[in-house]
Amino acid sequence: MPDGTPHLAPRAAPGFAMPSPARRGRGAGLNPAVRFESTAREAFDDGWGTLEAAFADLPPLPTTLTRDHAKSALAWNDSPDIGFDRAVNPYRGCEHGCVYCYARPSHAYLGLSPGLDFETRLLFKPEVAALLEKELRKPGYVPKPIALGSNTDPYQPVERTLKLTRAVLEVLERFDHPVTIVTKSAGVLRDMDILARMAQRNLVRVCLSITTLDARLARIMEPRAATPERRLAALRHLSENGIPAAVLAAPMIPGVNDAELETILDRAAAAGATSAGYVLLRLPHEIKQLFEDWLTRHMPDRAARVLSLIRQTRGGALYNSRFGQRQTGTGAYADLLAQRFAIASRRLGLERRGGGVGALDCTRFRVPEATTAGTQLALL
Protein backbone atom coordinates (compact mmCIF):
# COMPACT_ATOMS: atom_id res chain seq x y z
CA MET A 1 0.00 0.00 0.00
CA PRO A 2 1.60 3.31 -1.04
CA ASP A 3 2.12 5.70 1.86
CA GLY A 4 4.15 8.37 0.07
CA THR A 5 7.53 6.82 0.71
CA PRO A 6 7.68 3.75 -1.58
CA HIS A 7 8.52 4.63 -5.18
CA LEU A 8 5.46 3.15 -6.83
CA ALA A 9 4.30 3.73 -10.38
CA PRO A 10 0.61 2.77 -10.30
CA ARG A 11 -0.78 1.00 -13.37
CA ALA A 12 -4.46 0.43 -13.87
CA ALA A 13 -6.35 -2.38 -15.51
CA PRO A 14 -8.30 -1.46 -18.67
CA GLY A 15 -11.26 0.77 -17.88
CA PHE A 16 -10.08 1.52 -14.36
CA ALA A 17 -9.52 5.14 -13.28
CA MET A 18 -6.36 5.21 -11.18
CA PRO A 19 -6.80 7.03 -7.85
CA SER A 20 -4.38 9.89 -7.21
CA PRO A 21 -1.74 9.46 -4.48
CA ALA A 22 -1.74 13.25 -3.97
CA ARG A 23 -1.95 14.40 -0.36
CA ARG A 24 -3.58 17.50 1.02
CA GLY A 25 -1.07 20.22 1.83
CA ARG A 26 1.63 18.77 -0.43
CA GLY A 27 2.73 20.09 -3.81
CA ALA A 28 3.71 16.91 -5.66
CA GLY A 29 1.07 14.35 -6.46
CA LEU A 30 3.53 11.56 -7.24
CA ASN A 31 6.58 9.86 -5.79
CA PRO A 32 8.47 8.73 -8.90
CA ALA A 33 11.21 6.14 -8.68
CA VAL A 34 14.81 7.21 -8.09
CA ARG A 35 16.39 7.51 -11.53
CA PHE A 36 19.62 5.83 -10.41
CA GLU A 37 17.90 2.62 -9.31
CA SER A 38 18.04 -0.34 -11.68
CA THR A 39 14.60 -1.62 -10.71
CA ALA A 40 11.23 -0.02 -10.07
CA ARG A 41 8.09 -1.27 -8.36
CA GLU A 42 4.64 -0.91 -9.82
CA ALA A 43 1.22 -0.99 -8.19
CA PHE A 44 -1.25 -2.89 -10.38
CA ASP A 45 -5.02 -2.98 -10.11
CA ASP A 46 -6.22 -6.59 -10.13
CA GLY A 47 -9.85 -5.74 -10.77
CA TRP A 48 -10.97 -6.36 -7.19
CA GLY A 49 -10.81 -2.72 -6.12
CA THR A 50 -7.71 -3.22 -4.00
CA LEU A 51 -6.00 -0.10 -5.33
CA GLU A 52 -9.11 1.98 -4.79
CA ALA A 53 -9.09 0.88 -1.16
CA ALA A 54 -5.37 1.53 -0.82
CA PHE A 55 -5.62 5.07 -2.19
CA ALA A 56 -8.91 6.03 -0.55
CA ASP A 57 -8.73 8.73 2.12
CA LEU A 58 -4.96 8.75 2.32
CA PRO A 59 -3.86 10.36 5.59
CA PRO A 60 -1.72 13.51 5.56
CA LEU A 61 1.97 12.79 5.07
CA PRO A 62 4.06 13.82 8.09
CA THR A 63 7.41 15.54 7.74
CA THR A 64 10.34 13.47 8.97
CA LEU A 65 13.85 14.70 9.80
CA THR A 66 17.12 12.83 9.42
CA ARG A 67 20.58 13.98 10.51
CA ASP A 68 22.89 14.67 7.59
CA HIS A 69 26.46 13.86 8.63
CA ALA A 70 28.01 16.29 6.14
CA LYS A 71 31.77 16.74 6.20
CA SER A 72 31.75 20.24 4.73
CA ALA A 73 29.44 23.23 4.73
CA LEU A 74 30.43 24.95 1.50
CA ALA A 75 29.15 23.68 -1.86
CA TRP A 76 31.10 25.00 -4.84
CA ASN A 77 30.02 25.52 -8.45
CA ASP A 78 31.49 26.97 -11.65
CA SER A 79 28.21 27.61 -13.48
CA PRO A 80 28.29 30.66 -15.79
CA ASP A 81 24.52 31.11 -15.27
CA ILE A 82 24.62 32.16 -11.62
CA GLY A 83 26.41 34.98 -9.85
CA PHE A 84 28.08 33.06 -7.03
CA ASP A 85 30.58 30.24 -6.76
CA ARG A 86 29.82 28.95 -3.22
CA ALA A 87 26.76 28.23 -1.15
CA VAL A 88 25.61 26.82 2.18
CA ASN A 89 22.49 24.68 2.42
CA PRO A 90 21.57 23.73 6.01
CA TYR A 91 18.77 21.47 4.74
CA ARG A 92 18.20 18.94 1.96
CA GLY A 93 14.64 18.70 0.74
CA CYS A 94 12.13 21.48 1.34
CA GLU A 95 8.78 21.38 3.09
CA HIS A 96 7.45 24.33 1.09
CA GLY A 97 6.50 21.76 -1.53
CA CYS A 98 6.83 24.00 -4.61
CA VAL A 99 5.86 21.63 -7.41
CA TYR A 100 8.20 23.31 -9.91
CA CYS A 101 11.30 23.37 -7.65
CA TYR A 102 14.47 22.83 -9.70
CA ALA A 103 16.15 21.30 -6.61
CA ARG A 104 13.83 18.27 -6.50
CA PRO A 105 16.08 16.02 -8.65
CA SER A 106 18.90 16.42 -6.11
CA HIS A 107 16.97 14.18 -3.69
CA ALA A 108 17.67 11.23 -5.99
CA TYR A 109 21.35 11.42 -4.97
CA LEU A 110 20.18 10.46 -1.48
CA GLY A 111 18.20 7.47 -2.75
CA LEU A 112 14.94 9.36 -2.20
CA SER A 113 12.24 10.35 -4.65
CA PRO A 114 12.15 13.92 -6.01
CA GLY A 115 8.38 13.79 -5.56
CA LEU A 116 6.66 13.55 -2.19
CA ASP A 117 9.89 12.41 -0.52
CA PHE A 118 11.52 15.75 -1.36
CA GLU A 119 8.98 17.71 0.67
CA THR A 120 8.38 15.21 3.48
CA ARG A 121 11.71 13.45 4.11
CA LEU A 122 14.13 16.22 5.02
CA LEU A 123 17.78 16.05 6.01
CA PHE A 124 19.36 18.64 8.29
CA LYS A 125 23.00 19.41 9.03
CA PRO A 126 23.35 20.01 12.79
CA GLU A 127 27.10 20.82 12.53
CA VAL A 128 26.77 23.17 9.56
CA ALA A 129 27.86 26.31 11.46
CA ALA A 130 30.90 24.62 13.01
CA LEU A 131 31.90 23.15 9.66
CA LEU A 132 31.57 26.54 8.00
CA GLU A 133 33.78 28.20 10.63
CA LYS A 134 36.41 25.53 10.12
CA GLU A 135 36.42 26.17 6.37
CA LEU A 136 36.58 29.96 6.73
CA ARG A 137 39.63 29.56 8.97
CA LYS A 138 41.59 27.59 6.39
CA PRO A 139 44.80 29.35 5.29
CA GLY A 140 44.41 30.86 1.86
CA TYR A 141 40.62 31.10 1.95
CA VAL A 142 39.55 33.93 -0.39
CA PRO A 143 36.20 35.50 0.53
CA LYS A 144 33.41 35.93 -1.99
CA PRO A 145 29.67 36.17 -1.26
CA ILE A 146 28.16 32.95 0.07
CA ALA A 147 24.66 32.09 -1.14
CA LEU A 148 22.13 30.87 1.42
CA GLY A 149 19.17 29.25 -0.30
CA SER A 150 20.81 28.20 -3.54
CA ASN A 151 19.23 24.73 -3.46
CA THR A 152 16.55 24.56 -0.77
CA ASP A 153 14.98 27.33 1.29
CA PRO A 154 17.03 28.24 4.40
CA TYR A 155 13.86 29.50 6.10
CA GLN A 156 11.54 26.57 5.49
CA PRO A 157 9.30 25.72 8.48
CA VAL A 158 11.80 23.46 10.27
CA GLU A 159 14.15 26.44 10.70
CA ARG A 160 11.78 27.79 13.35
CA THR A 161 12.98 25.14 15.78
CA LEU A 162 16.41 24.04 14.49
CA LYS A 163 17.74 27.59 13.80
CA LEU A 164 20.59 26.28 11.64
CA THR A 165 20.37 29.22 9.25
CA ARG A 166 20.67 31.62 12.16
CA ALA A 167 23.74 29.74 13.39
CA VAL A 168 25.32 30.13 9.94
CA LEU A 169 24.59 33.86 9.94
CA GLU A 170 26.18 34.21 13.37
CA VAL A 171 29.40 32.71 11.98
CA LEU A 172 29.33 34.94 8.91
CA GLU A 173 28.76 38.03 11.01
CA ARG A 174 31.76 37.25 13.23
CA PHE A 175 33.95 36.80 10.16
CA ASP A 176 32.54 39.90 8.40
CA HIS A 177 31.77 37.62 5.47
CA PRO A 178 29.27 38.73 2.77
CA VAL A 179 26.15 36.64 2.19
CA THR A 180 23.11 36.60 -0.09
CA ILE A 181 19.81 35.00 0.91
CA VAL A 182 16.98 33.77 -1.32
CA THR A 183 13.78 32.69 0.37
CA LYS A 184 10.02 32.37 0.02
CA SER A 185 9.52 32.77 3.75
CA ALA A 186 8.76 35.70 6.02
CA GLY A 187 10.78 33.76 8.59
CA VAL A 188 13.82 35.73 7.43
CA LEU A 189 12.53 38.56 9.64
CA ARG A 190 13.39 36.51 12.74
CA ASP A 191 17.06 37.21 12.01
CA MET A 192 16.52 40.93 11.47
CA ASP A 193 18.98 41.79 14.26
CA ILE A 194 21.90 40.04 12.55
CA LEU A 195 20.89 41.16 9.07
CA ALA A 196 20.59 44.81 10.09
CA ARG A 197 24.08 44.82 11.62
CA MET A 198 25.56 43.13 8.55
CA ALA A 199 23.73 45.54 6.24
CA GLN A 200 25.45 48.47 7.95
CA ARG A 201 28.76 46.99 6.72
CA ASN A 202 27.40 46.14 3.25
CA LEU A 203 27.63 42.41 3.91
CA VAL A 204 24.14 41.15 3.10
CA ARG A 205 21.46 41.15 0.42
CA VAL A 206 18.08 39.41 0.81
CA CYS A 207 15.94 38.31 -2.13
CA LEU A 208 12.27 37.34 -1.72
CA SER A 209 11.01 34.95 -4.37
CA ILE A 210 7.45 35.85 -5.39
CA THR A 211 5.87 33.56 -7.97
CA THR A 212 2.33 34.90 -7.96
CA LEU A 213 0.10 37.41 -6.16
CA ASP A 214 -2.88 35.07 -6.45
CA ALA A 215 -3.28 33.42 -3.03
CA ARG A 216 -5.33 30.55 -4.49
CA LEU A 217 -2.69 29.76 -7.10
CA ALA A 218 0.09 30.04 -4.50
CA ARG A 219 -1.74 27.58 -2.25
CA ILE A 220 -1.73 24.81 -4.86
CA MET A 221 1.66 25.64 -6.42
CA GLU A 222 3.76 26.22 -3.27
CA PRO A 223 1.48 24.98 -0.46
CA ARG A 224 3.65 25.53 2.62
CA ALA A 225 5.46 28.73 1.65
CA ALA A 226 4.44 32.12 3.04
CA THR A 227 1.50 33.81 1.32
CA PRO A 228 2.37 36.39 -1.35
CA GLU A 229 1.21 39.24 0.91
CA ARG A 230 3.47 38.06 3.74
CA ARG A 231 6.43 38.01 1.37
CA LEU A 232 5.68 41.56 0.27
CA ALA A 233 5.40 42.58 3.92
CA ALA A 234 8.79 40.97 4.57
CA LEU A 235 10.28 43.02 1.73
CA ARG A 236 8.87 46.14 3.32
CA HIS A 237 10.23 45.33 6.78
CA LEU A 238 13.68 44.54 5.41
CA SER A 239 13.79 47.77 3.45
CA GLU A 240 12.59 49.85 6.42
CA ASN A 241 15.44 48.40 8.49
CA GLY A 242 18.11 49.28 5.94
CA ILE A 243 18.60 45.75 4.60
CA PRO A 244 19.01 45.68 0.79
CA ALA A 245 16.06 43.73 -0.57
CA ALA A 246 15.38 42.30 -4.02
CA VAL A 247 12.55 40.43 -5.66
CA LEU A 248 12.85 37.30 -7.77
CA ALA A 249 9.82 36.70 -9.98
CA ALA A 250 10.41 33.01 -10.36
CA PRO A 251 9.62 30.84 -11.97
CA MET A 252 7.62 32.45 -14.72
CA ILE A 253 5.36 29.72 -16.12
CA PRO A 254 3.89 30.41 -19.57
CA GLY A 255 0.11 30.43 -19.44
CA VAL A 256 0.01 30.10 -15.64
CA ASN A 257 1.56 33.12 -13.92
CA ASP A 258 3.62 34.98 -16.54
CA ALA A 259 0.86 37.56 -17.02
CA GLU A 260 1.60 38.71 -13.46
CA LEU A 261 5.23 39.67 -14.11
CA GLU A 262 4.75 43.46 -14.20
CA THR A 263 2.33 43.45 -11.26
CA ILE A 264 4.76 41.45 -9.11
CA LEU A 265 7.54 43.93 -9.90
CA ASP A 266 5.21 46.90 -9.24
CA ARG A 267 4.17 45.61 -5.83
CA ALA A 268 7.73 44.64 -4.88
CA ALA A 269 9.11 48.06 -5.83
CA ALA A 270 6.38 49.73 -3.77
CA ALA A 271 7.41 47.51 -0.84
CA GLY A 272 11.01 48.71 -1.08
CA ALA A 273 12.77 46.26 -3.39
CA THR A 274 15.75 47.92 -5.06
CA SER A 275 16.58 45.25 -7.67
CA ALA A 276 14.87 42.35 -9.41
CA GLY A 277 15.38 39.17 -11.36
CA TYR A 278 13.29 36.49 -13.05
CA VAL A 279 13.73 32.88 -14.15
CA LEU A 280 11.77 30.90 -16.71
CA LEU A 281 10.29 27.60 -15.52
CA ARG A 282 12.88 24.81 -15.53
CA LEU A 283 11.82 21.15 -15.78
CA PRO A 284 14.91 18.94 -15.47
CA HIS A 285 14.68 15.20 -14.88
CA GLU A 286 11.65 14.11 -12.80
CA ILE A 287 10.13 17.58 -12.57
CA LYS A 288 8.65 17.14 -16.05
CA GLN A 289 6.47 14.27 -14.81
CA LEU A 290 5.61 16.00 -11.53
CA PHE A 291 4.64 19.24 -13.26
CA GLU A 292 2.55 17.54 -15.94
CA ASP A 293 0.68 15.61 -13.25
CA TRP A 294 0.12 18.85 -11.28
CA LEU A 295 -1.20 20.62 -14.39
CA THR A 296 -3.58 17.78 -15.18
CA ARG A 297 -4.98 17.77 -11.64
CA HIS A 298 -5.31 21.52 -11.14
CA MET A 299 -5.67 23.00 -14.65
CA PRO A 300 -7.02 20.27 -16.93
CA ASP A 301 -8.66 22.82 -19.25
CA ARG A 302 -5.38 24.48 -20.18
CA ALA A 303 -2.72 21.85 -19.48
CA ALA A 304 -2.07 21.15 -23.16
CA ARG A 305 -1.77 24.86 -23.95
CA VAL A 306 0.68 25.48 -21.09
CA LEU A 307 2.89 22.57 -22.15
CA SER A 308 2.83 23.84 -25.74
CA LEU A 309 3.97 27.30 -24.64
CA ILE A 310 6.77 25.79 -22.54
CA ARG A 311 8.00 23.81 -25.55
CA GLN A 312 8.04 27.04 -27.56
CA THR A 313 10.59 28.42 -25.09
CA ARG A 314 12.72 25.27 -25.06
CA GLY A 315 13.28 24.48 -28.73
CA GLY A 316 10.36 22.05 -28.90
CA ALA A 317 11.25 20.13 -25.73
CA LEU A 318 10.05 20.62 -22.16
CA TYR A 319 13.56 21.55 -21.04
CA ASN A 320 16.89 22.70 -22.41
CA SER A 321 19.78 22.54 -19.94
CA ARG A 322 22.30 24.53 -21.98
CA PHE A 323 24.20 27.24 -20.15
CA GLY A 324 23.05 30.68 -21.23
CA GLN A 325 19.60 29.35 -22.11
CA ARG A 326 18.29 27.31 -19.19
CA GLN A 327 17.38 30.35 -17.07
CA THR A 328 15.61 32.41 -19.74
CA GLY A 329 14.74 30.08 -22.62
CA THR A 330 14.77 30.84 -26.34
CA GLY A 331 12.27 31.75 -29.04
CA ALA A 332 9.71 34.51 -29.50
CA TYR A 333 7.76 33.82 -26.30
CA ALA A 334 10.91 33.80 -24.14
CA ASP A 335 12.23 36.93 -25.87
CA LEU A 336 8.97 38.77 -25.18
CA LEU A 337 9.15 37.80 -21.50
CA ALA A 338 12.72 39.12 -21.31
CA GLN A 339 11.68 42.40 -22.95
CA ARG A 340 8.75 42.82 -20.59
CA PHE A 341 11.02 42.27 -17.60
CA ALA A 342 13.60 44.75 -18.88
CA ILE A 343 11.02 47.46 -19.57
CA ALA A 344 9.28 47.06 -16.21
CA SER A 345 12.58 46.95 -14.28
CA ARG A 346 13.80 50.10 -15.99
CA ARG A 347 10.52 51.91 -15.33
CA LEU A 348 10.59 50.96 -11.65
CA GLY A 349 14.29 51.54 -11.07
CA LEU A 350 14.88 47.84 -10.36
CA GLU A 351 17.78 47.36 -12.70
CA ARG A 352 20.72 45.52 -11.20
CA ARG A 353 23.11 48.48 -11.37
CA GLY A 354 25.12 48.41 -8.14
CA GLY A 355 22.57 46.18 -6.43
CA GLY A 356 23.85 42.71 -7.20
CA VAL A 357 26.10 40.24 -5.45
CA GLY A 358 29.20 42.05 -6.69
CA ALA A 359 28.29 45.14 -4.69
CA LEU A 360 28.82 43.40 -1.36
CA ASP A 361 32.03 44.20 0.53
CA CYS A 362 34.56 41.36 0.62
CA THR A 363 37.39 43.52 1.96
CA ARG A 364 36.10 43.42 5.55
CA PHE A 365 36.66 39.68 5.90
CA ARG A 366 38.77 38.77 8.92
CA VAL A 367 39.42 35.62 10.87
CA PRO A 368 38.47 36.31 14.50
CA GLU A 369 40.49 35.00 17.39
CA ALA A 370 39.52 31.40 17.97
CA THR A 371 37.41 30.54 20.99
CA THR A 372 38.06 27.35 22.92
CA ALA A 373 35.58 25.59 20.67
CA GLY A 374 37.22 27.08 17.61
CA THR A 375 40.66 25.94 18.78
CA GLN A 376 39.39 22.41 19.22
CA LEU A 377 37.90 22.49 15.74
CA ALA A 378 41.23 23.57 14.29
CA LEU A 379 42.83 20.42 15.70
CA LEU A 380 40.44 18.11 13.86
Rank of each mutant, 00 (worst) to 15 (best):
G83D: 15
P59Q: 14
V128P: 04
D68R: 12
L235E: 10
A225R: 10
P254A: 12
L8P: 02
A70R: 15
G315S: 07
A75Q: 14
Y155T: 01
E286S: 00
A167L: 11
G111F: 01
A373R: 15
T64N: 09
A54L: 10
R364D: 05
I264S: 09
H298R: 05
E292F: 00
M221F: 13
G349P: 10
E133F: 02
P228H: 13
D176G: 12
P62Q: 12
A225G: 11
L203S: 06
L238G: 03
T183I: 02
F124H: 02
A370L: 15
R236T: 13
S38H: 07
N257Y: 05
A226R: 07
A22H: 13
R322E: 07
M299F: 15
K288S: 01
T372Q: 14
V99F: 10
D153G: 02
A332D: 14
G358T: 13
D153P: 01
L380G: 11
E260I: 07
A215F: 12
E119R: 02
E240S: 10
G242N: 12
I82V: 15
P126R: 07
N320F: 01
A129K: 03
P143V: 03
E133D: 09
G25K: 11
T227D: 11
R219C: 13
Y319D: 11
A271C: 06
V34K: 00
G315Y: 04
A338F: 05
G242H: 12
M221P: 08
E159A: 02
A269E: 04
V128N: 03
T180I: 09
E369K: 08
L195D: 08
G354V: 13
A317Q: 12
R236V: 04
K71A: 14
P143K: 03
A9R: 08
S72V: 15
P154N: 03
A186N: 13
G140F: 00
